[in-house]
Simulated scan of single mutants.
Amino acid sequence: MSPVDHVVTSGTFSLDGGTWDVDNNVWIVGDDKEVIVIDAAHDADKIAAAVGDRRVVAVVCTHAHDDHVNQAPALADRFGAPILLNPAEAPLWEMTHPDRAPDRELHDGDVLAAGGIDLRVLQTPGHSPGSSCLYAPELGTVFTGDTLFNGGPGATGRSFSSFDTIIDSIREKLLTLPGDTVVRTGHGDPTTIGAELPHLEEWISRGH
């Protein structure tokens, strides 16, 4: 079994009075006995089917936009797993789940483990105040949520976001990773750190 399973789910993202159709990448990391689920989006049944009979160590949210967390409580309850989220995401989380708080806080430098794989938490605010990425050194991959995509940084045009902050996060936390690190994103196709690194200045000039 691959240490990384990938499920694509479809639904909507709503913020600031607008709603958009989106396809989300859900990542399941671990072995044949236990896993961590990253970003429980849209379809709890589809995600649960991919998990199978494995133990879910945690449901980790890279950030709290509704398209990344709308199924987190349902999935966590189904598997008896805690929900992990950076506390700076509270205002966004409460828009979707006002009656259920995350179970544990996610902080920069935390190390989460499932099936012998370590995921290091990299705090990468900008797309949202407490956005987090998860770096698995032994897999040579980083799960970036909506912080870094194939082609550039995540969107910063809506509430609780900052372009300057996301650029600082990408420059300091992500582009310093090995160039062959595979970037597994919250939406769309994967990329690598090396493929995105040369475009930093171009993003900055475009963003301003």
Rank of each mutant, 00 (worst) to 15 (best):
1 M>G: 14
2 S>E: 12
4 V>Q: 08
4 V>K: 06
7 V>S: 00
11 G>K: 06
14 S>C: 14
15 L>I: 15
15 L>G: 11
16 D>W: 08
20 W>L: 15
20 W>K: 13
21 D>K: 15
23 D>E: 15
24 N>E: 13
24 N>L: 06
26 V>I: 12
26 V>T: 11
29 V>I: 09
30 G>N: 04
31 D>E: 06
33 K>R: 15
35 V>D: 03
39 D>V: 05
42 H>D: 04
42 H>N: 09
44 A>C: 14
45 D>P: 03
45 D>C: 12
49 A>E: 14
51 V>P: 03
55 R>T: 15
55 R>W: 10
56 V>K: 01
57 V>T: 03
57 V>I: 13
63 H>C: 10
67 D>V: 11
68 H>C: 12
69 V>E: 07
74 A>Q: 13
76 A>G: 09
76 A>L: 07
76 A>F: 00
78 R>V: 11
79 F>I: 07
81 A>T: 02
81 A>S: 07
83 I>W: 03
83 I>E: 02
85 L>R: 00
85 L>H: 09
86 N>L: 03
86 N>M: 08
90 A>E: 12
92 L>W: 10
96 T>Y: 11
96 T>Q: 12
96 T>W: 11
98 P>K: 05
98 P>Y: 12
107 H>C: 04
115 G>E: 04
115 G>I: 03
117 I>G: 03
118 D>M: 06
120 R>L: 03
122 L>H: 01
125 P>V: 00
128 S>Q: 11
132 S>A: 08
139 L>A: 02
139 L>G: 01
146 D>Y: 01
147 T>V: 13
152 G>D: 04
152 G>W: 07
154 G>D: 04
157 G>Q: 07
158 R>E: 15
158 R>I: 15
160 F>S: 11
161 S>Q: 05
163 F>M: 14
165 T>V: 13
165 T>C: 15
166 I>H: 05
171 R>I: 07
171 R>W: 01
173 K>V: 06
175 L>M: 10
178 P>Y: 08
183 V>M: 07
189 D>F: 11
190 P>F: 04
191 T>D: 04
192 T>L: 10
192 T>W: 04
193 I>H: 01
203 W>M: 10
204 I>A: 09
